[in-house]
Design a protein around this nucleic acid. Sequence first.
RNA 1: UGGGCCGUCGCCAAGCGGUAAGGCCCCGGAUUUUGAUUCCGGUAUCCCCAGGUUCGAAUCCUGGCGGCCCAGCCA
Length: 567
Amino acid sequence: MSKNEEVTPLDFIRQTIANDVAAGKNQGRVVTRFPPEPNGFLHIGHAKSICLNFGVAGEYPGGQCNLRFDDTNPLKEEDQYIQSIRTDVKWLGFDWQEHLYYASGYFEQLYQFAERLIQDGHAFICELNVEQMREYRGTLTEAGRASPWRDRPMAESLELFRRMRAGAFPEGRYTLRAKIDMASPNINMRDPVIYRILHAHHHQTDDQWCIYPTYDYAHCISDALEEITHSLCTLEFEDHRPLYDWILDRLEGVVSCHPQQIEFSRLVLEYTVVSKRKLNALVRSGVVDGWDDPRMPTISGLRRRGYTPAAIREFCRRIGISKTPNNVELSLLESCIRDDLEQHAPRAMAVLDPLKVVITTIAPDHCEELSASNHPQNPELGSRTLYWTQEIIIERDDFAENPPKQFKRLVPGGEVRLRHAYVIRCDEIIKDPNSGAIIELRCSHDPSTLHANPADRKVKGVIHWLPLHRSQPAEIRCYETLFNTANPDEAWQGDDFTRLINPNSLQILSHCRIEEGLQNLPAGTIYQFERQGYFCVDSRYSRTDHPVFNRTVGLRDTWGKQQNKSS
RNA sequence: UGGGCCGUCGCCAAGCGGUAAGGCCCCGGAUUUUGAUUCCGGUAUCCCCAGGUUCGAAUCCUGGCGGCCCAGCCA
């Protein structure tokens, strides 16, 4: 490999898997799974897991990644989430092929295995209620006490378990517990509940069941039944691995596969929260207009904002996989979307805050067709026609009556180039006699400057513009971070999060103008509005007679940065 | 202060006993009809700290310090 080739080193999980494959473990197969619970929308943190699981599987011939809904708690889950999760995973560019599964699809087997555990003396029916169980569990520093039902005869537990399934008892009356070790320093091993009674309708199994397995019990067995080779999950499940292994060890001979669980640290992204509870609170409070609000870190929010699957995948590649507690800067995400859009987004012009300019050197009925390329580096994106007319508009802050140092735009008596058009000189400022506000500029143009720079002088600035009458009105929505603090998760206390909300997170500019031809684009279409940023047609509010664009991300702005520093 | 895990540049992150990759951010400079892009160049004598082993340690050992996770019949 040559020196200047970029080499992405394997993360520790990929190293482990590569070693396993090389050693012929699992007959060299690589099978992973992405196991969301259908109780909410997928977010950027899930994207990390999706990219890892599907990504790794895709790196091996015959590699496979299952999409499995971890639907063991009917109280929290809904079918609509299943649909949105499928949509989002596909949109991200991944394919589970025929491997779509549900933990609920294994309920019968799970039940049979539970009977087996009881028969083997590894599980018992307990009658402690929630409070009692908490008491018996002990604390982090003190061992727990055995349940009085721990030594219930096997046959009695089995009988009770069967009656539980038959619906003979109310919720909470009994639980099935694994018989492990109440003195374990690992609280997960203190006889954890593996089945509970829930008289609830399940979105997949209807009313077939009134007992449901817990995550710890169902997850490892589901993995094993699917012959997962590497079960990748986040760090908070590290303490559950002994239980994962314990259950599969007890079922050896009945379940032939024992996947290896490996944990990695979950994504923490500046200025965002991803807990379902908090995301939900934002939606319910009306601070955002739904799960797909462009300020939300959900996949659907990012999509509506204009983020591309490729950019999100690249982001996940760049953040890497490790066990280090992390706090990724937003600038990394932004860099990924800029890199993608820089190459692919066609260019156009839009004026967000118009200032009228009259070109005094051409006739009122003058309309000249100018050709403008759609991408400075990629001619394949073609070109379009711009109309050079007497009345045009420019961005209000591209003119300064009293310019700051280094200002390269239009100033009284100064010249500036209009992008794809001529060099103009500002000859006169028209102000509102009452307010003193600038309402119009009168400029002359230099006809020799269309595709050439003047020979005798240097014009340093280039600004964007639009013909007043041959442009269209549009609404443009500019976003900032939803929160005013980089670590909203820490700052979030109780449910009073309103003080954490950035009042400028959404700015609606309703008097913008865009090029003709941009008012009837399909939702999601992305353009770069030159000198400003990347914008995409909003999927909820945009209509032909009222185009709405979302600013995905601004262009890198060294001038603005400089200004901020000096002010 | 029970158990588990983690500590390498502002933020991610390689490194696996042979003398600190890369990306993002940042700072210079060149090119530019986007103050964009692109392009060059700069940015850890040091790897949480202290000892030790070794010809040689970010990597091994010992002891500290700091951070995260766990006491749901959630996942």
